[in-house]
Amino acid sequence: MTDDLTSSIASSTPDSLPAVQTRALRRVYRATPSEVVALAGVDLDVGRGEIFGILGPNGAGKTTLIKILTTLLLPSSGSARVDGLDVVREHRVLRRRISMVSGGDVSGYGLLTVREQLWLFSQLHGMRTGEAHARIDALLERLGLAEVAHRKVSALSSGMRQKMNLIRGLVTDPRVLFLDEPTVALDVGAARDVRDEVRRWIAEDGGRTVILTTHYMHEADELCDRIAIVTRGHIVAQGTPTQLKQDVQREVVVDLSLQRGAPLLDALRSLEGVAAASVSPDDSVDRFSLHLADDAALSGVLTVVERSGRRITALGKREPTLEDAFLRLVGRSLSEEEER
């Protein structure tokens, strides 16, 4: 623990403590032939009442960060506090105040009913049965699962199961709720229900905090008050979605679709006036996303395309998104990062 962090926490009252605070947080995994640095010195401050997004490709270090903050994993060095408690030394007390829900979670026991399963997990926090059932019933009603309360867990659809998992995370009324890719592989409707409930839950009590990891840009944009962009164990930027998009807003963002042909990405990236470029194959076309310094840079782009002999199927300017901010900050799109 750094001295600065110790003194700032010691002089604070509990309510003024940040919900999450990390300093120079590092985690290295032993591996062959060389060790893997999952977190390379992360500094993070999350205030109470925030929905804080951790955005990055698979393997960026998001899940490692969550595992450390939820006391499942020790950091190799650095410090981390959640709800004012040190995750290494005060983990037993901290576990009373946190909860975690992961996407695709199949934990628990399939032969139990939904209500029984939720009750089982509430007992690990010592909740009285009457109180647990009252909260479970209210949450089942709110998330539209009241009708399946007495159905076996093994008979639930993936969307229902994930809503049940979210209730499991909420029923013990944690101070900090960790959501690790909570909507992964869910259909649009179920994902929306999960996001709506997270928003409603946080709005009910200003002392609650949500830490959300996702690689769905639109989800982070829609849900989070602030976002940290993580890649290869580093936080490369953090701020509100608007702040993150601000840098890109000065640029011209162009979507360009070309018929399949010879590779063009490197040629486009090397052009003067092209700040960033990415490509994603889609059916018979390649969709390029280009960040241009100004409109004039477009003529250079079109010249390169013409020389390549590839036909343009669509071209248009649009408002920048978080995906564009990611591309600008990291230099590659999220999907490119995941492939590396």
């Binding site: 909860s99 975690m100 992961s102 934990s107 010592g126």
Partner: peptide, 18 residues
């Protein structure tokens, strides 16, 4: 394997009670 152990560990209970 199915993620239940994680939930036991991050809860305030003891594995011995489980």
């Amino acid at each position: 394997d199915n993620g239940t152990l994680e939930l036991y560990v991050i809860s305030p209970t003891s594995l011995f009670a489980v």
